[in-house]
Design a protein around this nucleic acid. Structure first.
Length: 588
RNA sequence: GCGGGUGUAGCUCAAUUGGUAGAGCGCGACCUUGCCAAGGUCGAGGUUGUGGGUUCGAGACCCAUCACUCGCUCCA
């Protein structure tokens, strides 16, 4: 049903009808920041409330948290954001490409230039072969390399290689020489794409910095959080104890996050200030599950994913949450075939992640991530345990009881088995033994499954999906275009609009006001008395109001009203009680 | 941050070679109106993104700046 459309059409409707405005527009706007207008903030609120209801209130095993945006800077040291979010970047002065300074040599090795160089150094560097490459193939591959561009430079390089071939026996050293043969000072780092000169690496901090306290001193620097998740880990023990939850259980949080993106792009899709809905769902390590249940259910067992089981291993929990998240996305109104599940390949995963699924929606600008569901092992809690010195372990009574039933031989066998498994993942036996010893005491650092969604992205996807331009032809054959936003009723910013059929008849008008008064107490209702009835319907179509109620002369006689459906444009007559019941059911 | 394109009313767009800014839609008021963008009358809205400069005169030309957009980067 959704019409193929460009982002321009969506964004102009959003502005015209008050969904989304450019932040600080009267001062020329500010890149990467967006405001939600009257309808937009209602809709965004609906998305968040629906997520909260589904993730927290309707479950017994998830507790909520609302932490601050500014936290102790040590949190970002522990999480790794301080290091990974401040990559020094270099730009090529010739081809203008931007790259992480620490990846220059990897890019070179992976590219055609690197392969060309690698071929040259097989069996020892030969100055003649190098010169031949510079005059031939390299003209296409690395046109901006000094030795390719400049004959004198090539000659200088030729002499240096002849003098000491062993010094240039690896691709990187050789490439640097070809860029610096004439001894430029300081030495030039050549671009791995074209051989041109790279700028000095400049820090690119993706976290927003601020200063806590009145003194503007480097010691007081703090950061606006780049994700909400870390607060959950930092408050893990407090929440666990006060909520009286036992693993497996989750902690959920919604809130603003900030990233100083290099290039905000695609309307609200990549913003510098955005809102997240994150759940950290803590589970037992598989080894603990095995001790308690005697077995670990994996996806190979084709488990029923509808009700969580104690025997589930991380793999099943991960898949369970993928399914839960997809179900929610569908319930919000995105059709099943409009998004895909993308399983990150092993080489794409962060080093601590065991699996990560991206739910990708096909936006007008391409298939892009809506949310991610990551299996992050015990990485986060362990990091905070290390950096804070505070224990992140939980005590698991069933685990201790199960371990107590094992005799020494069984314990030794279990320890040996775990050590062997850990060894295949490159972990040392010492760590495995310490981990198992803790397990026998009923203690471990929980592992975590992290479904992390972007509110703004979900909203953008819903806007894109809902938009339709319908060609209508009336009985007289007159053509007309109707713009409809097909929001699901639970997400729609306005649920019901109320119209008096005519406004110059006080009886009808007053009756309509009375009915409007009833409805607005139950759901987001909108009053419109301006213009012809058809125009009023169309105005509501454009903002996605599912139902319009019209009060006419018959209402005065029998108390019934007409309920007009947005998608079918059909009307039915209902009593006020029937109407209330219908709305209640649809919005539950 | 770098390079290409763009910026006129709430929206979509006009405005000869530089000559003093306009249309449609929308919006507001009133009248009319018995169900799908109806009709009538009246009305509000722009220092042409912003700031400089060239010129007798700039929406148009030059410079700067801000933003949008496409690439490099990124992933809620």
């Amino acid at each position: 049903m959704p019409t193929t459309n460009s982002l321009d059409v969506i964004s102009s409707l959003c502005k015209r009808r008050g969904f989304i405005f450019h932040s600080s527009e009267i001062y020329g706007g500010i890149n990467g920041f967006w405001d939600y207008g009257p309808l937009g903030c209602e809709m965004k609120r609906n998305i968040k409330e629906d997520w909260w209801k589904t993730t927290v209130r309707n479950r017994e095993d998830v507790a909520g948290l609302d932490a601050t945006i500014i936290m102790h800077p040590a949190i970002w040291k522990a999480s790794g954001h301080l290091d990974t979010f401040s990559d020094p970047m270099s730009t090529c002065k010739s081809c203008k490409k931007l790259m992480r300074a620490d990846q220059v040599w990897d890019i070179l090795a992976d590219g055609e230039i690197g392969q060309g160089l690698a071929a040259l150094i097989v069996g020892g560097v030969d100055a003649g072969k190098v010169a031949g490459w510079c005059k031939g193939k390299a003209k296409g591959l690395a046109p901006n390399l000094a030795a390719v561009r400049d004959a004198d430079a090539l000659t200088a390089a030729f002499e240096k290689i002849k003098a000491d071939p062993a010094a240039y026996a690896d691709a990187q050293a050789l490439y640097v020489l070809l860029a610096n043969a004439k001894g430029s000072q300081p030495a030039v780092t050549p671009c791995p794409y074209c051989g041109g000169e790279l700028t000095e690496p400049r820090p690119f901090n993706l976290m927003f910095k601020t200063v806590v306290g009145p003194v503007d001193d480097p010691a007081n620097v703090a950061y606006l959080r780049p994700e909400t998740a870390q607060a959950i880990f930092a408050q893990f023990q407090n929440v666990q104890v006060t909520s009286r939850q036992q693993v497996p259980f989750g902690i959920a949080q919604m809130g603003k996050s900030f990233r100083n993106e290099v290039t905000p792009r695609n309307y609200t899709f990549r913003s510098r200030e955005f809102e997240q809905m994150e759940l950290e769902f803590f589970i037992r390590p598989d080894e603990a599950v095995e001790l308690i249940c005697g077995t670990v259910t994996t996806m190979a067992d084709s488990p029923d994913l509808s009700v969580p089981q104690a025997s589930w291993g991380w793999e099943v929990w991960h898949k369970y949450w993928v399914e839960q998240r997809k179900a929610w996305i569908q319930a919000c109104g995105l059709p099943k075939d409009s998004f895909v599940e993308y399983w990150q390949k092993p080489e794409e995963l962060a080093h601590y992640a065991r699996a990560c699924v991206d739910i990708e929606y096909s936006f007008p600008f391409g298939v892009q991530e809506l949310e991610g569901i990551a299996a992050r092992s015990d990485f986060d809690l362990t990091q905070h345990q290390k950096h804070s010195g505070k224990s992140m372990e939980v005590f698991d009574e069933p685990l201790k009881l199960a371990a107590a039933k094992l005799d020494e031989a069984a314990k030794a066998a279990f320890t040996a088995k775990v050590s062997a498994e850990w060894a295949t993942r490159g972990k040392d036996a010492e760590a495995a033994r310490a981990f198992v010893a803790k397990l026998f005491e009923g203690k471990y650092v929980p592992h975590v499954i992290e479904p992390s969604a972007g509110v703004d992205r979900m909203m953008l996807a819903l806007l894109c999906n809902a938009y339709e331009e319908q060609k209508l032809t009336d009985e007289k054959g007159k053509e007309d275009v109707r713009v409809v936003m097909h929001f699901s009723p639970r997400i729609a910013p306005v649920k019901v609009a109320v119209f008096p059929l005519v406004k110059n008849k006080p009886e009808v008008y007053n009756k309509a006001r009375e009915i409007f008064g009833h409805l607005r107490r139950r759901c987001a209702a909108f009053w419109d008395e301006g213009g012809a009835i058809g125009r009023r319907y169309r105005r509501q179509d454009e903002i996605g109001t599912p139902w319009c109620v019209t009060i006419d002369f018959q209402t005065l006689d029998d108390g019934t009203v007409t309920l007009r459906d947005r998608d079918t444009m059909q009307q039915e007559r209902l009593t006020l009680d029937q109407l209330k019941a219908k709305l209640e059911e649809a919005l539950l």
